[in-house]
C-alpha cells in the first residue's frame, strides 16, 4: 500500500481554554477526493487551519506524503505542494487580477505559466486582468482563487466552503473545475455545506462533530446515515 497523502492522528487544537479539536483521525489516500461534512462549530475549518499550518495543534501527528509536518509554517507547506483555499475571501482585494496571479508563483510555478493556465480555464479573468480583484463579483473572485489550485500544481488541495455566498449555478461551475483538477490526480479535501454538490465529486466522505471524526465512508453511505450520526434520529 502506498503512503497516504494526508494522515492525521489524534489532532487536538484549542482557542484559549476552549478545545475545538479533540483527537481528529483522518487518512486521505493519494489521488482521492474527500468531502468533510459536519455542523457549524464542529471544528472543520479549524482542522483545515491545522493542516495548512495556520493554527498550532496542541497534540497529535500530521503527515503529508509520509513526512511529519505538524506545526510547519504555512508558507513552507505551500511551497512543497499544499494548496489551501480558505473560507471567505481568498484573493487580495486591493491587488489587480494580474498581481494576484503573480503572487501565486510563490508556490513554485513561474508567473507566466500561472497566468497562462488561469486565462485558459477562465477567459473572463483575462478580460479583467487589470481590474482590482475586490471589485469583481463573488463568482469571479472565487475563479481567481481557484486559479491557484489549478495553476500551482499542488499535491494536496484543501477547499474550505468554496460555495459560500455564491449562486448555485456558479457553485456548479466551480465544482466542474474541482472535478477537472481531481482528474489530474490531485488529492483533495473539501469542506462544503452543499452536501450533495460536494458528495457528487468525492470518492470518500467524513463527518465531524464536536471536534472528532464520527463517521467515514462512501458518499452514498454517508448521505444516508448523516442524519442518524448527527441528530440521533431522522
Amino acid at each position: 500500500m502506498t503512503v497516504p497523502m494526508l494522515e492525521a492522528i489524534g489532532i487536538h487544537a484549542a482557542y484559549g481554554r476552549i478545545e475545538v479539536l479533540r483527537g481528529v483521525d483522518l487518512t486521505i489516500p493519494r489521488g482521492a477526493v474527500m468531502a468533510l461534512l459536519g455542523p457549524n462549530g464542529a471544528g472543520k475549518s479549524t482542522f483545515v487551519k491545522v493542516i495548512s499550518g495556520q493554527k498550532e495543534a496542541t497534540a497529535g501527528d500530521l503527515h503529508l506524503g509520509g513526512v511529519h509536518v505538524r506545526n510547519a509554517s504555512s508558507d513552507a507547506l505551500a511551497r512543497v505542494g499544499l494548496c489551501t483555499v480558505p473560507e471567505g475571501r481568498s484573493v487580495f482585494p486591493n491587488l489587480t487580477v494580474e498581481e494576484n496571479l503573480r503572487l501565486m508563483s510563490y508556490a513554485g510555478v513561474p508567473a507566466d505559466a500561472v497566468m497562462e493556465t488561469a486565462f485558459r480555464y477562465f477567459p473572463r479573468l483575462l478580460e479583467r486582468r487589470r481590474q482590482l480583484a475586490g471589485t469583481m463579483s463573488g463568482g469571479e473572485q472565487q475563479m481567481l482563487a481557484m486559479s491557484r489550485a489549478l495553476a500551482s500544481d499542488p499535491a494536496l488541495l484543501l477547499l474550505d466552503e468554496l460555495s459560500m455566498g455564491l449562486a448555485p449555478l456558479i457553485v456548479e461551475e466551480l465544482y466542474d473545475t474541482v472535478r477537472e483538477i481531481a482528474e489530474t490526480g490531485v488529492t483533495i479535501l473539501c469542506i462544503e455545506q452543499f452536501a450533495r454538490t460536494a458528495l457528487r465529486v468525492s470518492d470518500y466522505a467524513a463527518v465531524m462533530t464536536g471536534g472528532r471524526i464520527v463517521a467515514t465512508g462512501e458518499p452514498e453511505e454517508i448521505m444516508e446515515s448523516m442524519a442518524d450520526v448527527i441528530l440521533g434520529a431522522a
Partner: peptide
C-alpha cells in the same frame, strides 16, 4: 427531510 436535517448537518 431536506430542509429539516441537511442544513443542520452540513452548514
Amino acid at each position: 427531510d431536506a430542509t429539516t436535517t441537511i442544513p443542520a448537518v452540513t452548514s
